[in-house]
């Protein structure tokens, strides 16, 4: 890299880190929210079933 590797490689690594970090944060948040929604729906279904039973 003509003696400039110390500037070129960090540029690419930081860009990769930011983009992969964004993607990972997005997917983890999506997965967590989907799990929360599923759990919430299950509790609501349970409480509805209880109401119906009583």
């Amino acid at each position: 890299m003509g003696g400039y590797g110390a500037f070129i490689w960090p540029s690419y690594l930081i860009a990769a880190a930011v983009l992969i970090g964004l993607l990972a944060q997005t997917l983890v948040t999506l997965w967590r929210r989907e799990r929360t929604l599923a759990a919430l729906r299950a509790t609501i279904a349970d409480s509805d079933a209880e109401k119906d039973a009583s």
Partner: peptide
């Protein structure tokens, strides 16, 4: 990423409503 995040926002809105 925008499509994933939109999906995530819509799930979050559903959670809020529930």
């Amino acid at each position: 990423v925008l499509i994933f995040r939109l999906r995530s926002e819509i799930v979050a809105a559903k959670i809020r409503n529930l």
